[in-house]
């Protein structure tokens, strides 16, 4: 009974903490804008199948490259598909894949980083070297290789992206852990005789969690860009699934006279990236984490 009660209290406080952080984020204009964009995109991703006025894959040669009109708000593309329909649905795959990709990046990057920070010494050196070596290969080449070997299914893309974007998180988690384990409260816990696991869980994780989460949020926006580049190159989502990267790539050649087919997905993609970026920044500020000194990738 007692334990249950304690748990309920704890949950409530986590919920409270989240809402507090969200409120702090939204209290600054940039955070508010970022959050609104992100929420808009997430809602869109969920609701777009119900909102879409047309079938996203209905090809109609007679409607090829129509300019925007009251019927086709954003015009039609080279296969006569409705650009508006495809645009509002074009973020779904990217958002889903990169979201889960980021989770994987967070998980392996965070855990490995914490592990390296904890053990230090030779093991840490070796692991970091290996990670560095693996990831010094240009990621896009490596991705192309993986995709061409294993295909472009979600089961391949999510872990592959997660793997390549976890490196930065390893570094951040490792550095944060290094900082924390030198602190006296860890010494104090050790001297009391707490087990290693309890020290990791109670003393270390709460103190590195914020930094890792912020890094993860940042990585999300970069991963989105990366994934869209893959789609653009034809290695991401396979047609006819609507996807901004793919749409931009397809419509790019016709840009000079059918600008509408390319502008809408560009706006969609860049607004989402900006939204996530602003949100991550506000998130970092709300948690009091200084990212200014770290360079991207």
């Amino acid at each position: 009974m007692e334990i249950n009660k304690a748990k309920v209290n704890k949950k409530k406080s986590i919920f409270k903490k989240i809402s507090e952080v969200l409120l702090t984020m939204a209290s600054k204009p940039s955070g508010f804008i970022g959050l609104s964009i992100l929420v808009f995109h997430i809602l869109l991703a969920f609701l777009s199948p119900f909102l879409a006025p047309y079938d996203f894959k209905a090809i109609d040669p007679s409607l090829m490259l129509q300019a925007p009109s009251s019927e086709y708000w954003f015009g039609t593309d080279s296969l006569g598909r409705d650009v508006f329909t495809r645009t509002i649905m074009g973020g779904r795959t990217a958002l889903t894949i990169t979201f889960f990709g980021s989770l994987i990046a967070l998980l392996w990057g965070g855990l490995l980083g914490i592990f390296c920070g904890l053990v230090g010494g030779k093991i840490d050196d070796v692991v970091m070297r290996v990670v560095d070596a693996f990831l010094s290969i240009p990621w896009i080449l490596a991705m192309l290789l993986i995709v061409s070997l294993l295909g472009t299914s979600t089961q391949v893309l999510i872990p592959a992206l997660g793997f390549f974007y976890g490196k930065g998180i390893v570094r951040v988690a490792r550095a944060a852990t290094h900082d924390v384990i030198a602190k006296d409260f860890i010494v104090s816990a050790r001297a009391r005789g707490h087990s290693n696991l309890s020290i990791i869980w109670n003393e270390i994780i709460p103190n590195v969690r914020d930094a890792i989460l912020v890094e993860g949020a940042m990585r999300w926006s970069w991963m989105l860009l990366g994934f869209s580049s893959l789609s653009f190159l034809g290695f991401g989502v396979s047609p006819p699934t609507p996807d901004w990267g793919l749409m931009i790539s397809n419509a790019r050649g016709l840009m000079s006279f059918a600008y509408w087919a390319v502008i809408a997905p560009i706006v969609g993609l860049s607004s989402l990236i900006i939204g996530i970026n602003l949100t991550a920044d506000a998130f970092a500020k709300a948690l009091g984490i200084d990212r200014s000194t770290k360079a991207p990738v």
């Binding site: 006296d184 409260f185 103190n207």
Partner: peptide, 9 residues
């Protein structure tokens, strides 16, 4: 410890 900033989580 000396520095309570460091000794309290």
């Amino acid at each position: 410890f000396q520095n309570p900033d460091e000794s309290l989580n």
